[in-house]
Every structure is written in C-alpha cells, then in structure tokens.
Design a protein around this nucleic acid. Structure first.
Length: 301
DNA sequence: CTTCCGTTTCCC
DNA sequence: GGGAAACGGAAG
C-alpha cells in the first residue's frame, strides 16, 4: 500500500525526504555503446553465484542469466574459502529458491564508485555496466535500487531530527557513498564529512566544479526540484544520438576494454582484500578508476 | 518499462 | 542476527 501520490510525471521538487526524491545526476559520461563484456579476470571475484532467476519480463534486454553460466567469477573471498556452489536445488518443489549473490570486491568497487556519481542509471547504462561487470541487468538494477534505499536510510540517520529537507541541505553536505564494509576504513568520516571519493569526483575537468561542487550536488541531487527517474531515463542525453555533451565531458584518460583487467590486476598486486581500495587509489585517482569505466568504449565517430 | 517500498531469503 | 541480494507488488 505504498502509494505515493506521486505526481503524474515528476515528483514535486522540494518535498519531504520521504517520498521519491530521485537524485538525478546529469549524465556525465553519456551513453556509450557497449564494447564487450569485460571478462572479470576471476581475480578476486568472490563468488557471484546467482540463481537463475526466472526471467521476468524485462529480461529482454538483458542477459539475465546472472552468469553462473557465463562467467566463472565465482570464487570465494580469502576469508571463507569454500566454494559453495551449493545452491539449493531442492527447489524442485516449485518454490524457486532465492540465490543471494555475493558480489566481488571489484564489482562492488565499480558499482559504488558509479553510484556515487550516478544514483540512477538509464537502462542502457545499466546494461553496459552489467556487461562489464559480468552481472545481469537485473542484478545491477537491483543493486542500485538497494543502494538508493540504503542511501535514504543513511541520510535519515544523519539528520534524525531534520525533517526539513531545506535544512538538511544547508546543514549537511554529506552524501551516502554506499561503501561496503571493507571500505569503511577508507572513509574519511562517515558521520558528516563528504566522502573522499565524492570530493575527488568533482574534479572533473569539464564539470563546472565551481558551480557543481560536492555541496551543490548534494543539494541538487537530493532535493531536486524537477527531476524524476523516469524522465531522466528518457532524456536526450541518454540517447545515443544525443551525445554532444558527452564528448566534451570525456575524461582524459581512457581505459579500454581491458580496463577491468588492469584494475583487477592492480587489485591483485596491491593485495586485494581490504587494502584494495587504498592501494588502488595510489595508482589511479578515484576519478580515473571511475572514468575508465564509463568510457570503456569510445563511440566510433 | 521504470521507480519505490516492503519483504523474503540467503550468506557471513 | 545483521547485512545484503533478490523478489513481489503498487504506482507512474
């Protein structure tokens, strides 16, 4: 019965942090063709085993089989080592068992990094991301949804007494970064300061950091007045044909198809595990790490 | 189709 | 038991 009397199309701008408050983020990467799924070098991918969910209706554009069949990215983290491919197959009774995938650190890293800049992905972007990470469309979509939920909860907990969205933005510039446990040590200050990644992220050369600094973003994103996910996904900038913007927004560094491979190798050599993030930042700026990602493919002009 | 929310189910 | 992935349903 959750029926947000959401407006016809877009949610009212300044509204309670309760109803849908999408945080649109201008697509800075622009839609790109998907090159080819980046084979996760099964480097550390813990175990991303997945169910074979019954394709719902939207799997049309996705390789929905989460991949247990496509990618071996199923390995156990150095902690609990035991491959447990043991999925309850007893589901033969008709009750489809739910398999909970454990994303690899690399996958989470990329997802998180992306999430920090973009709370919402277009379907195409989701698709691309899923290809790169060797995840299913659904998985990426679900992950972002779950992340958004956590983000909201996190925000609320940050301003327990502030129910006024206006006050929030002025008093806090925090933005949920969506860090997973292993990264928390890396966070500057989970209790109020802008996450490191976020701040660095705003060094986009082509982004008006003067105008769009972290605070602006925070304000804008979580109190957006004229934005809604659906509209967003239909925007021109999500349209391959409209990429005038993205060109100018392309970061200088372009990793190519094997970007993930590079990243992973670094993760490995750096000693993956918990140190992976810290280490990786020594080689790449968070910006770069992230940038390689959306640009894995350069649109052939 | 998407979003959200609430819930379930699983892994640690 | 907590956290997180996945599911189901309502609403747009």
């Amino acid at each position: 019965m959750r029926a947000d009397p959401a407006p016809p199309q877009c949610p009212p701008g300044p509204q309670a942090p309760n109803s849908r408050d999408p945080s649109p983020m201008p697509e800075i990467y622009g839609p790109r063709e998907n090159p080819a799924s980046l084979p996760m070098s099964s480097a550390e991918t813990p175990r991303a085993e997945t169910v074979s969910p019954l394709p719902s209706s939207m799997d049309l554009l996705t390789q929905d089989s989460p991949d247990s069949s496509t990618s071996p990215r199923v390995k156990l983290p150095p902690t609990s080592g035991e491959e447990r491919t043991a999925r309850k197959e007893d589901a033969t009774q008709g009750k489809k068992q739910k398999m909970r995938t454990v994303f690899s650190q690399t996958q989470l890293y990329v997802l998180n990094d992306r999430f920090q800049r973009q709370k919402y992905l277009s379907s195409q972007q989701t698709q691309e991301l899923s290809n790169i990470l060797n995840l299913s469309y659904k998985q990426v979509k679900s992950w972002f949804q779950n992340q958004r939920t956590k983000s909201k909860i996190w925000q609320k907990s940050n301003w327990p007494e502030q129910s006024n969205s206006v006050t929030q933005t002025s008093s806090a510039t925090t933005e949920y970064a969506g860090f997973y446990p292993c990264c928390q040590g890396y966070l500057p200050n989970p209790s109020g300061n802008l996450p490191l990644w976020s701040s660095q992220a705003w060094n986009y050369p082509n982004w008006n950091s003067q105008t769009w600094n972290s605070q602006s973003w925070s304000n804008h994103s979580w109190n957006s007045q004229t934005w809604c996910p659906q509209a967003w996904n239909n925007q021109a900038w999500n349209n391959p044909l409209h990429n005038c913007e993205e060109e100018s927004l392309q970061p200088p560094i372009q990793f190519q198809q094997n970007s993930m491979g590079d990243l992973e190798s670094i993760f490995k050599t750096a000693g993956e595990s918990h140190g992976v993030l810290q280490q990786s930042t020594k080689y790449f700026s968070s910006q770069q790490i992230m940038d390689f990602f959306p640009n894995y493919s350069e649109h052939s002009t």
